[in-house]
Design a protein around this nucleic acid. Structure first.
Length: 589
RNA sequence: GCCCUAGUGGCGCAGUGGUAGCGCAACUGAUUUGUAAUCAGUAGGUCGGGGGUUCAAAUCCUCCCUAGGGCUCCA
């Protein structure tokens, strides 16, 4: 590949060209980093150094991990190369020569051996050959074209991402076409940190964690209120879309998990308890319980589709290093439901689900989500015919939905294909929320049957589905999207009534009672603080509305309405305010 | 699970071998105030847990627990 020069201004490039340019610059920065590390740590072995979103990294095999001080030194060393403004040069070599050059580096040898026979093998250098790296190419013209860069962090990373391999030391950095662009990016990161749901969870009194129950949130009254409002909304949708709610036990005799296959495939993530010499497993999923409910009676085709919703609490013993705030917990609730239906009903069921999902995401203004279709994996149950048909149905539905999606071959569960919905957090990391999965296995394992119209006994299909998925995770993503400012219908405290002086307290309490009687969540701040302070408190807690009352308002039977955006909506009669609030809650605005 | 970093009153932090501190919050009193912080006082900590070094440990060593960043983006 030919180097790209900064011959024209970055801002004149098309978005695609800008993307390309940044990738080249970041990849080039990774090379400069690699050279700096080689100079400072002579024994370090180079492995890979690709551009990534917003930056680059390079993985090194070194005996000792890098310290923060090392990082500073490396950054200074990089400055020298960039100041020198030397040219990036690529040269093609024979395989034999390449092998000779990387002989002492098993990682590079492995990379080299992985290059297809019909591809060129190239090395690149930006220091007149003094430092060379096996490289596919794609650079800027000169080191000086890396206008802004910064090393951000170090981390351990397995070679090839496989935990059975050696752990390498990764250095993360960022690089930009200008100092301003970099500054903007770093500020964006800082802003994102302010939205971190773990910080806001504390600040807004929503939840906390304690080592006594690792990775298991304690929801404070306000956090529980938000979750319950969400669940209430989901229940409304269930009513509309024909679901029935069920409740099932928390722990089951291990026999059930043996039957469902979880004991074999999922035991390491489960909690077990021994009671009276019998072993029980705490449920990590609701599916087997749903299957038992289906089996509880002789089923007819007339009952299908049967949609059973279960908000049961689940426990999964996630590996210690992967838990993360509310995003990945060990104790959770899902808006989970299982649909038992005929094969012919799959299409309409999933279609209705996608409709309900769009409705619910729309209600929360969730943007930036993407769909992923996961197709058959190597190891699977069910016939090829079933997979052919099921995949065709899902593909057609997605095509017709107009929703952009990606199809991932081999990513499906062993028991069926699925569609996952991913939503990014404040830092742009994607999290799977919604999902709809076909299951060809559960009906077999539980020998589920229904009486068909012609009197024969047939096997139903099971569809697992959730819109918000794990509600803990969903809440985390939602907090970051909204920066903690919940819409009125979700806000744990919807209104704070603020008396200006003590003599206004009684009036404000009356206002509070009036709103509360209509189902609004109201607090009256009758503390001895000044009004300014009360407003500030309410602002910090992101309460949607503050109703201020002093002599003037009492005289008029009104309250002065202030929104958390700082907007002064003026004095309004209490009944009018009440009506506005109720309307806003009802329409979920 | 693995690598790095961290753990000090409810929360946010300072304190690197010699008497545990600050801000916010809490509590008490005073103040009664017009849209983001009124003033004064009081109380609160076995410094994540165990073991060790030392005359002396929040501080040094060691094991464990928990949290944060990262571990599929290929030369």
């Amino acid at each position: 590949m030919e180097p790209i020069a900064m011959a024209i201004k970055f801002s004149d490039l098309s978005p695609a060209e800008q993307q390309e340019y940044r990738e080249r610059m970041r990849h080039s920065a990774a090379h400069v980093l690699a050279e700096a590390v080689t100079k400072l740590f002579p024994g370090a072995l180079l492995t890979i150094g690709p551009p990534i979103d917003d930056g680059f990294f390079y993985d090194f095999a070194v005996p000792e991990p890098f310290t923060p001080e090392d990082l500073a030194k490396i950054e200074l060393e990089m400055r020298e190369s960039i100041k020198a403004n030397t040219e990036f040069v690529e040269r093609e070599t024979s395989r034999d020569e390449a092998l000779e050059l990387v002989r002492d580096n098993p990682y590079k040898v492995e990379i080299l051996e992985g290059i297809p026979a019909d591809e060129r093998v190239t090395f690149c250098s930006h220091s007149d050959g003094a430092f060379e790296d096996l490289c596919r190419g794609g650079h800027v013209e000169r080191t000086g074209d890396i206008r802004a860069y910064k090393l951000l962090s170090t981390a351990g990373a397995y070679w090839r991402g496989n935990e059975n391999n050696t752990m390498l030391q990764r250095v993360y950095g960022t690089a930009w076409e200008s100092r301003d662009a970099q500054k903007e990016y770093l500020q964006r990161r800082e802003e994102a940190e302010k939205r971190d749901h773990r910080k806001l969870g504390r600040a807004l009194d929503l939840f906390f964690f304690d080592p006594i129950a690792p990775a298991s949130p304690f929801f404070l009254p306000k956090g529980a209120q938000v979750l319950n409002s969400l669940i209430g909304y989901v229940k409304e949708l269930y009513q509309k879309y024909g679901y029935q709610e069920v409740m099932t036990p928390q722990i089951f005799n291990t026999d059930l998990w043996r039957k469902s296959g979880h004991l074999e495939a999922y035991a390491e993530n489960m909690y077990f308890v021994d009671v009276d010499d019998r072993e029980f497993g705490v449920k990590p999923m609701n599916c087997p319980a749903a299957a038992m409910l289906f089996q509880a009676d002789a089923r007819s085709y007339r009952e299908l589709p049967m949609r059973l919703a279960d908000f049961g609490r689940l426990h999964r013993n996630e590996r210690s290093g992967v838990t993360q705030g509310l995003f990945r917990v060990r104790s959770m609730v899902q808006d989970d439901a299982h649909i038992f239906c005929t094969f012919e009903q799959i299409g309409q069921e999933i279609s209705a689900f996608l409709e309900m999902l769009a409705e619910s995401y729309g209600a929360l203004g969730l943007e930036g989500h993407r769909f992923e279709l996961s197709l058959r994996p190597e190891k699977r149950v069910g016939t090829d015919e079933m997979w052919d048909q099921a995949e065709a149905i899902l593909t057609e539905l997605l095509d017709n939905s107009g929703q952009a999606y990606t199809a991932e071959a081999g990513e499906g569960a062993f028991y069926g294909p699925k569609i996952d919905i991913f939503v990014p957090d404040a830092l742009g990391r994607d999290w799977q929320l919604g999902t709809v999965q076909l299951d060809f296995s559960l009906p077999e394992r539980f020998d589920l049957e229904y009486a068909a119209e012609d009197g024969t006994r047939k096997r139903p299909v099971v569809i697992h589905r959730a819109m918000y998925g794990t509600l803990e995770r969903f809440l985390g993503v939602l907090i970051e999207h909204l920066a903690g400012a919940f819409p009125l219908w979700l806000a744990p405290v919807q209104v704070v009534v603020v008396p200006i002086a003590d003599r206004h307290n009684d009036f404000c309490r009356t206002v509070g009672e009036k709103l509360r009687a209509k189902g609004l969540r109201v607090e009256v701040d009758d503390s001895s603080d000044r009004m300014n302070s009360k407003i500030r408190q309410a602002q910090l807690k992101k309460v949607p509305y503050m109703l201020v009352a002093g002599d003037r308002e009492i005289e008029a039977g009104a309250v002065a309405v202030r929104s958390r955006t700082g907007e002064d909506l003026g004095a309004k009669p209490i009944d009018e305010v009440l009506e506005l609030l109720i309307e806003q809650v009802a329409t979920r605005h």
